[in-house]
């Protein structure tokens, strides 16, 4: 059974059809790439899947239940985590606090424990701190736990976004241009990291990326969007040789 199933999704902004008749099915454990020229509607698809936008047409199913129209935080709790194209960290907070926030709902201590600082409060706080720290260790950020998020270099901010998304224990991880602004060295490390994360947490991943070499190496299936419509779908090999894709990327090299 598919983990994510998207049927005929459409959304217009005024006269602009940002997403038009979008279909997608992702099986558990798959790593799917979503590519397309600037303004193709990729981020808009993410925003619909995560509940930031309501689609005008179409339905979204996740893990067997329909999630169309649910609020963002509820969709996140059902198991869809995401990162943002234009990094959205909690800027003034420490790296550790950023990750703690994402895990907080799972910490589940009640108001009584909060106000009277009971033993449970301490236990849960310790659990949250340890969990958050372990996520930071995975992304090699533990040494920076006490730094203010906005002071991190760009590449580390991107990694922190992933750490934060992982803290909510997602089944499906949506990565919006995780390599943007990274140097080739960092991009290579990111590639290995994503592959490792996928194994380690048996994650299903949907990835938007402009760096073609990264997408081609990483994804087993790729969808190409242009003007809100899917113009091609297939293996990296098929996509590379697809004339419509080459046309959409006119001038750009698809290698």
């Amino acid at each position: 059974m598919a983990l994510l199933k998207v049927e005929d999704l459409s959304l217009s902004f005024g006269g602009l059809r940002a997403v038009s008749g979008f279909n997608l099915e992702i099986k558990p454990g798959e790593l799917v790439g979503l590519i397309g020229p600037n303004g193709a509607g990729k981020t808009t698809v993410f925003n619909i899947l995560t509940g930031f936008y309501q689609p005008q047409e179409g339905r979204v199913f996740f893990d067997g239940t329909e999630i169309t129209g649910l609020g963002c935080h509820r969709i996140n709790r059902l198991g869809i985590g995401r990162t943002f194209q234009n990094i959205r960290l909690f800027n003034e907070l420490t790296v550790l606090e950023n990750v703690k926030i994402a895990y907080q709902y799972a910490g589940g201590y009640s108001w009584r424990h909060t106000i009277f600082r009971t033993g449970s409060y301490r236990r849960y706080e310790q659990e949250i701190a340890e969990w958050a720290l372990s996520r930071l260790e995975i992304l090699d950020l533990a040494g920076k736990a006490e730094e203010i998020a906005k002071n991190l270099p760009y590449g580390e901010q991107r990694r922190l976004e992933i750490a934060r998304a992982l803290a909510g224990r997602p089944k499906l991880l949506l990565l919006d241009e995780p390599a943007a602004g990274m140097n080739p060295q960092e991009t290579m490390e990111l590639l290995e990291l994503i592959q490792w994360l996928r194994q380690e947490f048996s994650l299903t991943i949907l990835l938007i990326e402009h760096d073609m070499s990264l997408v081609m190496k990483l994804c087993e299936r790729i969808l190409v969007l242009d003007y809100g419509m899917t113009i091609a779908e297939g293996s990296p090999e098929e996509i590379r040789n697809n004339p419509r894709v080459i046309e959409a990327y006119l001038g750009e090299e698809v290698s």
Binding site: R77, R88, F90, N91, E92, I101
Partner: peptide, 13 residues
Amino acid sequence: EDEIAAEAMGINT
């Protein structure tokens, strides 16, 4: 800090 990111992290803002 960021209401949109907070929602995306599962917080009922």
